[in-house]
Nucleic acid binder design. Structure first.
Length: 823
DNA sequence: CGTTCCCGCCACCCG
DNA sequence: CGGGTGGCGGGAACG
């Protein structure tokens, strides 16, 4: 033990502090707090307690890293001032500063999102623990969930290999598949239904039966999901019977990938995760523990930017929940597509892969959503950060030598993986995601034609070396801020939906009103931010990016690739997934049957909508984009396939009976869905579009774009604006003046109203609009709609308070309202 | 007070 | 049998 302390603090309990502080992490802490120092009654008490407690021994008083300090400063900038002498608030290491999330951030900062296989991406738990000044135990928590995502893998005891996000795509696909096989969607439905019934004190006995049919049934207790190329972990060391965290984490993720609104409440998650193991036993403590674990997992997933916390509000108050913010996951596809896509794919991404270097160097590898051009001014920051990271990595603390064998594994794997991954990223894995949609359109505006699009040159900041990156259509801002950003943000500020979806009917109106906007048919299942409890079918629906050659000339379609919904065949999913367990095959038939059965009882969703981008964008050239996605998805089955518009809850049975029109446009009286975030995003889009289109050479690095990007990427907290004269600031949600409520009855009236509303909104996009801080989004939604048939409608209303509400269906059970709000 | 979740005891399990 | 793992839940910090 080398109790070498920089600060002469008399930490009696200070156990181990590594003298050799990492070069990167600025060790010196502003002010050191002496635990024994009696300046706060609380502290005294604490001391006494700790002293009295039998386990005083390893009471570590670790200081926080500069990062934390920074965050703290941000959090309470005002408090810093010299108020009443010295003693400020509490002790430095506030609980938050020790949070797992923060720790995870620090951890992730040490490794690149896309490490080059060449580098020795080894993780020594001990070292990390020391450098981060935390108990090893905490590192396990992080590593375990990372492992569940195959971002790391265990090599030997105390040693892990870092893979970064290279495998993420595949992993998520696999998880999604397994999730589907497990019929998590149905299970979720079950639980929700049960809750609902409980409210009315309905006989809960009946439920048991249902439970049996669903959740408990086929205890497909799947264990750890492995990746094809990944399993070969040091077999020797990897015997531990993976129980909880790892598996739990995977299941948790599955829930997101499988559920349509991609929002999962802790409660539901916990119940499902418990229910799997044992038949429903409302064990209080067990539940509680599960929740606690989920928080742990959620924290690191949050750090990975895969999810973010939101709140779901029902009649019974609001419950914590999480929303998937990670990449949209494509249904697993055979390898066939590889060639097809690779040819169509813009060279940049697919090529560079050859040289991992570039990949890893690209701090903003193209990722699912958040396809925003990296603002040049960010480059600097990014670079320095990366630099730091490099230092850390090369720090003497991690001198581990690579064994030939392991090295092999490491390098070999990525090589194969990358191409596929790259392609996915390119394609944009979320065909369904609205955000994807929008971002892509934005991207297209800016990037699809590099020549046309001027490269923003930040005043004084020019990074020629980065040019290539910018030129690449794919060199867009990924959400991978986690690895980049030194700043810790509370939550990803910006939401996810950037598009406005309109029903065709409304579309007309809108177009009329403001000709400058274009309507773009868009299949957006989960975009709306609405919660669709029974989107079971949805899960099987795959949006197909389209009709390749969809025209570029037709204004209505030119903007983005046309997308279609196609049902995904179970067969495809089945056959694609290679699960270690062979039992699967045996159950295949059974599952089919089950699936069919369940289909009958569940509701179906037919999503759709329109994206309303600026016309200018159309000028651009997105031809390439729209084309390349052609035939990505192999729709070998089309049970319910058909491009459909509108979000329409329909029961399977109804579906059969009603005979859904191919163009289900009229099925939905209306379905305009505005999410607060969309409002915020829109300005950006418009701005960028304007820049690129209006003036073919608009060097103006719009600050709003920067701000938005920063916020979105998490470099700065929401609400914070980067100094720059705001040309187009976020349009406050409140820009929507009136409440809009649509019902099937008074459609025409409502319609008008809506259009008006939209018009207002669109108008508000103009530069003159005053900026306002983003507000938490609130989505109200009805659950458990009754089988209302085609008449069911969705409606949206914007409250004067700036929050929006989206509710669907007038025939839903009113009590089943649900709100999702981001903090 | 409810939510979030840190801390670290201690059971496992693997050399 | 020692040490790495990590399940687990009390209870403190936070809001």
């Amino acid at each position: 033990k080398t109790p070498l302390k920089q600060a002469a603090t008399s930490h009696s309990v200070l156990t181990e502090l590594q003298p050799d502080c990492q070069p990167l992490t600025t060790p010196p802490k502003p002010k050191e707090i002496l635990p024994a120092d009696p300046w706060t009654p609380t502290s005294n008490l604490k001391m006494l307690i700790s002293a009295a407690s039998p386990e005083i021994r390893s009471r570590e008083q670790r200081r926080e890293l500069s990062n934390n300090a920074r965050e703290v400063l941000q959090a309470k900038p005002c408090l810093q001032e010299h108020l009443s002498g010295d003693e400020y608030e509490k002790s430095q290491p506030s609980r938050k500063e020790k949070s797992l999330g923060l720790l995870c951030h620090k951890f992730l900062a040490r490794y690149p999102d896309y490490p080059s296989p060449a580098a020795n991406n080894y993780i020594c738990l001990d070292e990390v623990a020391e450098e981060l000044n935390v108990e090893r135990r905490r590192i396990y928590d992080i590593v375990n969930v990372l492992e569940s995502l195959h971002m790391v893998s265990r090599l030997a005891k105390n040693r892990y290999a870092w893979h970064g996000r290279h495998n993420l795509s595949k992993t998520l696909q696999a998880l999604k598949k397994v999730g589907e096989e497990n019929k998590y969607t149905q299970q979720i439905q079950m639980i929700k239904k049960r809750e609902y019934e409980h409210e009315f004190d309905l006989d809960g006995e009946r439920n048991e039966e249902m439970a049996r049919s669903f959740g408990s049934n086929e205890h497909s207790e799947m264990s750890f999901v492995e990746l094809p190329g990944m399993e070969f972990r040091a077999a020797s060391v990897n015997s531990r019977k993976d129980k909880s965290l790892r598996v739990m984490s995977q299941k948790f993720v599955m829930l997101f990938l499988v559920s349509t609104p991609q929002i999962v409440s802790l409660e539901v998650a916990a119940k499902i995760l418990i229910g799997e193991d044992q038949l429903e036993d409302l064990d209080k403590s067990k539940f509680k523990t599960k929740i606690r674990r989920l928080y742990d997992i959620a924290n690191v997933l949050s750090s990975l930017q895969l999810i973010k916390k939101v709140h779901v509000t029902e009649e019974r108050g609001r419950k914590p929940a999480f929303k998937w913010t990670g990449p949209e996951v494509l249904p697993y596809i055979q390898d066939t597509k590889l060639e097809t896509t690779s040819t169509t794919c813009p060279p940049p991404v697919s090529e560079p892969i050859a040289s991992k270097e570039q990949c890893s160097k690209n701090l903003f590898p193209s990722r699912g959503k958040q396809n925003f051009t990296r603002h040049p001014s960010l480059i600097k920051l990014v670079k320095s950060i990366e630099n730091d990271r490099r230092k850390i990595q090369s720090a003497p603390t991690s001198p581990v030598k690579t064994s030939a064998s392991t090295d092999q594994n490491l390098s070999a794997f990525p090589r194969q993986m990358v191409p596929a991954i790259a392609r996915h990223q390119l394609e944009g894995q979320s065909k369904k995601a609205n955000e994807m949609k929008l971002s892509r359109s934005a991207l297209e505006c800016n990037l699809s034609s590099p020549e046309v699009v001027p490269k923003p040159q930040p005043p004084g900041t020019t990074a020629p070396s980065q040019q290539p990156a910018l030129a690449q259509p794919l060199a867009v801002c990924p959400p991978s801020h986690s690895s980049v950003s030194p700043v810790i943000l509370p939550h990803a500020p910006s939401g996810v939906s950037y598009a406005i979806y309109l029903h065709p009917s409304q579309a007309h109106t809108v177009t009329t009103y403001s000709p400058s906007f274009m309507l773009q048919p868009l299949p957006c299942a989960n975009v709306t931010g609405m919660k669709s409890p029974n989107a079971e079918v949805l899960n099987k629906i795959t949006t197909e990016e389209g009709d390749n050659q969809i025209a570029t000339d037709e204004p209505t379609k030119s903007l983005a690739a046309k997308e279609r919904l196609t049902t995904k065949s179970e067969t495809s999913s089945q056959r694609c997934l290679k699960r270690p367990q062979a039992l699967q095959e045996n159950n295949l038939i059974k599952r089919y049957r089950r699936d069919e059965e369940s289909l009958d009882t569940s509701l179906t969703f037919f999503p759709s909508g329109y994206l309303i981008p600026l016309t200018q964008c159309a000028h651009g050239n997105k031809a390439g984009f729209s084309k390349e996605k052609a035939g990505i998805c192999s729709l070998q089955h089309t049970t319910y396939a058909s491009p459909i518009a509108g979000v329409i809850p329909v029961t399977a049975s109804e579906l059969k009976a009603v005979n859904i029109p191919k163009t289900a446009f009229h099925l939905t009286p209306m379905n305009i869905m505005l999410s607060p975030t969309s409002l915020a995003a829109a300005p950006v889009l418009s701005n960028s579009c304007l820049n690129s289109s209006n003036t073919s050479s608009a060097p103006n690095p719009s600050p709003s774009v920067l701000n938005f990007t920063l916020q979105h990427v998490g470099l700065i907290p929401a609400g914070v604006q980067v100094p720059a004269n705001p040309v187009l600031q976020h349009v406050a949600v409140s820009s929507q003046p009136e409440n809009v409520t649509l019902t099937s009855e008074n459609m025409s009236l409502q319609e008008e109203k809506v259009s008006k509303n939209i018009f207002n909104f669109l108008s508000s996009l103009q530069p003159s609009v005053p900026k306002e801080p983003q507000e938490p989004q609130t989505v109200t939604e009805n659950f458990f709609r009754t089988p209302g048939g085609p008449n069911t409608v969705s409606s949206l209303s914007a409250n004067s308070d700036g929050t929006e509400r989206i509710s669907q269906g007038t025939q839903y059970i009113p009590q089943r309202k649900l709100e999702v709000s981001e903090d």
